[in-house]
């Protein structure tokens, strides 16, 4: 059986999600042995001329013209495109600057000095704002098990479905005693599941790194936060560092 051609590309990100993939490869070479990795970001930054891909993984936010061209290029030559990592799915850390768009050049000058010309967009985007994405594998970083299961499913011809329920379900299944009930401000109820709740399992509140859950009860969450002295603005900031300042609503 011909192995599917898989390519990996990276844009504006810390590449932590790539390390998760490498970890997964270490533990489960069988899955990675079943695919033909034709392009890996560390070896080739851009697609080779005639290459066509069965599956393309794109990580990182689109924050400049180069990134935007790259994602369009990849889309044209790929059957199935996966945006992986919160940066690719929601904008992530590169998008932290989004709410201050208008101060973009001022910040740039401050950080890089006035001699380096501004090359990036005033705002960093999720990949889906530029091309159609077939699957969003979110997480900061991604959950390596999800990566393995998605590749496994694609090898079997199954289209993966991202969880449409909150982290609370993962958390209970992981046997964690609810942090929220102990007074910790956990963003679990409004965050998309799929990570197996490693942070709550280590007694750290979920901070919503996997992005907002579309059907979450935002009103109630705001109310409960307020009872703990957290204003909606603050909650926006907490979750907003992964979504470019925007919440789901």
């Amino acid at each position: 059986m011909v192995k599917p051609k898989v390519a990996f590309f990276g844009m504006t990100s810390c590449k932590g999600c790539y390390f998760q993939l490498l970890l997964a490869n270490e533990k489960l070479p069988a899955i990675f042995g079943s695919i033909d990795i034709v392009d890996f970001w560390m070896l080739n930054e851009k697609p080779k001329d005639d290459d066509m891909y069965d599956i393309a993984f794109i990580d990182g936010a689109v924050s400049n013209h180069e990134n935007a061209e790259l994602v369009r290029n990849v889309r044209e030559r790929s059957k199935y495109v996966i945006a992986f990592g919160t940066c690719a799915c929601h904008g992530g850390i590169p998008a932290v600057r989004n709410p201050d768009e208008r101060k973009h050049s001022a910040y740039h000058k401050l950080v890089y000095g006035k001699d380096i010309k501004v090359k990036s967009y005033p705002h960093a985007d999720p990949v889906s704002r530029h091309i159609h994405v077939d699957y969003e594998m979110t997480g900061c970083p991604i959950n390596e098990r999800e990566a393995v299961e998605v590749i496994r499913d694609l090898l079997l011809g199954k289209k993966p479905v991202a969880p449409d329920y909150p982290v609370c379900v993962d958390c209970k299944k992981a046997g964690v005693s609810c942090l929220f009930k102990e007074g910790t401000l956990c963003m679990g109820p409004v965050t998309r599941a799929g990570c197996n709740a490693p942070c709550p399992a280590s007694r750290t509140a979920c901070d919503g790194c996997r992005g907002p859950l579309p059907d979450a009860n935002w009103n109630e969450m705001e109310k409960l936060m307020k009872e703990h002295g957290i204003e909606k603005k603050t909650m926006n900031m907490m979750l907003g560092k992964y979504t470019g300042g925007k919440m789901a609503k």
Binding site: P166, C168, V169, K172, C178, P189, A216, N217, E220, M221
Partner: peptide
């Protein structure tokens, strides 16, 4: 329902 977070904790426990 306006108060419910649909976290499924009730059905879990």
């Amino acid at each position: 329902a306006k108060r419910c977070l649909s976290c499924a904790s009730c059905t879990f426990v």
